[in-house]
């Protein structure tokens, strides 16, 4: 195991980098997009609510692998050429957005009722009340579940291995097929995944406790 760490450090470092890059890109874009979808779901407009709802239900109910494969195999065939890393990250982004939207929506709805009316009664518009009163509080409530979603996202990014996305899992496959030492190759990247995910999820547990 130590041998694998030494002999393949450059592959492991690059895999680690691609995994982090994909996860961060996905996190940033799906936070923005997720908030937008959540807003669609809560604003007083029936059509917008429907659109938001449909998006969330579709992307939460189909496997990530299908979304990623769609972007890797079908989109380049009929539309534009994108590589494995991009296809995987776009798939992750669309998938994660649905989950983030769901978290934010329930966050907004848990503060909304009285707060919104209170803020409106002081003369704020709907937009202002949402922006200055409801959303800041909602964000506070949803930080732990968002953090857990981020942990899930890092784990899910291993899907990149299916589309030659150069991430940790892909590197482990490559290392295993050279060293023929399957268990230890996967063990090494298991340690690397744990290094990223475990502190994060402990921190989220700590926050959850502090807020309770």
């Amino acid at each position: 195991m130590i041998r694998i760490f030494n002999n393949f450090s450059s592959q492991l470092v690059s895999g680690f980098g691609w995994t982090i890059l994909s996860s961060l890109l996905t996190l940033i874009f799906s936070l923005i997009f997720g908030v937008l979808i959540a807003l669609l779901e809560v604003i007083p407009n029936k059509a917008a609510n429907k659109i938001g709802r449909i998006y969330v239900e579709i992307f939460r109910n189909i496997p990530l692998l299908i979304i990623v494969m769609f972007f890797y195999l079908i989109v380049p065939k009929y539309f534009v050429k994108i590589d494995g890393f991009t296809a995987g990250t776009i798939g992750l982004f669309l998938y994660t957005s649905a989950f983030i939207a769901e978290i934010i929506r329930s966050g907004i709805q848990s503060v909304s009722q009285g707060q919104m009316e209170g803020a409106r009664s002081t003369g704020m518009t709907y937009k202002q009340a949402m922006r200055y009163v409801v959303l800041p509080q909602a964000f506070k409530i949803v930080i732990p579940p968002l953090g857990n979603q981020f942990v899930n996202l890092i784990k899910d990014s291993s899907i990149l291995a299916f589309v030659a996305g150069f991430d940790l899992m892909y590197q482990a496959n490559a290392i295993a097929s050279v060293t023929f030492d399957t268990i230890n190759s996967y063990f090494v990247i298991g340690v690397l995944y744990i290094i990223i995910t475990m502190p994060l999820s402990y921190y989220m547990q700590y926050l959850e406790k502090k807020m309770a």
Binding site: Y72, L73, V75, P76, K77, D83
Partner: peptide, 14 residues
């Protein structure tokens, strides 16, 4: 991962 994916990838100009 496998030949099915590889042929699909070739046809998708990957």
């Amino acid at each position: 991962q496998d030949y099915g994916q590889a042929v699909s990838a070739l046809k998708s100009h990957q």
